[in-house]
Amino acid sequence: MFEQAGFSTVMVTNMPYWSEKMGVPRTMGVEFPYGHMLGMPGDREMQMTVILAALSLLAEAQEPGTIRELDLEWPQPFDEAKKDWQPLEPSPVVKMMIEQRQAAAEQARGQG
């Protein structure tokens, strides 16, 4: 949308899978938890590393659909990071899915 409007764009995402599937002009993939695409809070150096990589991609990419990946490890232990990004209470759609699953399980028990 923005590219068609005449802007050059670069996206930093932890889901380069989607970029490949949907056709995003320029993608810098990072293996970071959701809501943290540019790095750890308070870590200026890490944020700059990600941003400069994205800017280099923007300047150098020659064809639409270019995907690069940044080989930078998230500094937090995996289990902690996987839990930390998630909301304290489930989002409305996840809550709905949990309730539907419980209702289906109860119905199955009733029939069994």
């Binding site: 943290h36 790095g39 809070p41 700059m48 909301p87 304290l88 409305p92």
Partner: peptide
């Protein structure tokens, strides 16, 4: 509603790097 917003409220630059870009 799909994120824990604590970290981005502590440092906006992890989602919207206004301070990093001002430095650049």
């Amino acid at each position: 509603l799909h994120l824990n917003n604590r970290d981005l409220q502590a440092d906006l630059n992890i989602v919207l790097p206004v301070h990093r870009f001002a430095e650049l």
